[in-house]
Design a protein around this nucleic acid. Structure first.
Length: 202
DNA sequence: TGAAGGATTTGT
DNA sequence: CAAATCCTTCAC
């Protein structure tokens, strides 16, 4: 028995490069209109920040990226390549455009005795920013919404078990360069859980 | 008003 | 490596 600790805006009101690694091990929860609740452990993130040429807010404020300029704790969803959506968590202080891209989720374990092939397949269902939005039914209608209980999306802090494993070294994090960019490719602003089967790319 | 291109994914 | 596919941005 455990009580979920919901992530508040104040915890997200820090530079995206600090929040991105801290979000690993936290849980993303999606509640659909019909009441279905989907949960996934965040296992891969990327940070986007001011002065970063890969950031959507690099040039100027536009209709699409305006939520990035606002306060922390809101969602930023955009459409990429005409067919996939990507989910971000807006971070840092009001007026500082920045966000963390959620790139991969580890979905809840299947019941004991499940076919190992099925389990391996499940590991890849949310292994990538476009795939996780597809799995969690996240589209443009969910942009600029607060992450909070009762909303379509919210975030929960790391469970004590995860935090203990992390502190004892049983879980390790990897920091590396971001994926799929044409600019800002050298910034090491991608983090993921080492040897996690649900990470998009090792 | 139109053209170019993208923080992706999948299959050849 | 190229296609799929459409919204956003920027130029004219």
């Amino acid at each position: 028995m455990s009580t979920a600790q919901f992530i508040q805006p104040a915890w997200l009101a820090r530079p995206s490069t600090e929040v991105a690694p801290d979000l690993l091990g936290c849980t993303l929860v999606r509640q659909t209109a019909d009441g279905t609740v989907l949960r996934g452990l965040i296992v891969e993130t990327e940070a986007y920040a001011p002065g970063d040429p890969a950031c959507h807010a690099y040039r100027r404020q536009t209709t699409r990226n305006s939520v990035m300029f606002g306060p922390a704790g809101l969602s930023y969803v955009y459409l990429i390549y005409g067919m996939y959506h990507c989910l971000n968590v807006v971070t840092d202080l009001d007026g500082i455009p920045s966000a963390v891209l959620i790139r991969a989720l580890q979905l809840d374990a299947m019941p004991p005795g499940t076919d190992p092939l099925k389990e391996r397949k499940l590991d890849r269902v949310a292994a990538g920013p476009g795939k996780l939005c597809r799995a969690f039914q996240i589209d443009l209608s969910l942009t600029a919404l607060p992450f909070a209980l009762g909303q379509p999306l919210w975030l929960e802090h790391r469970q004590p078990n995860w935090q203990e494993d992390f502190e004892q070294g049983a879980i390790a994090l990897v920091q590396t360069t971001r994926i799929g960019l044409t600019q800002g490719i050298d910034l090491p602003w991608r983090w993921y859980v080492k040897q996690c089967p649900a990470v998009s790319k090792p």
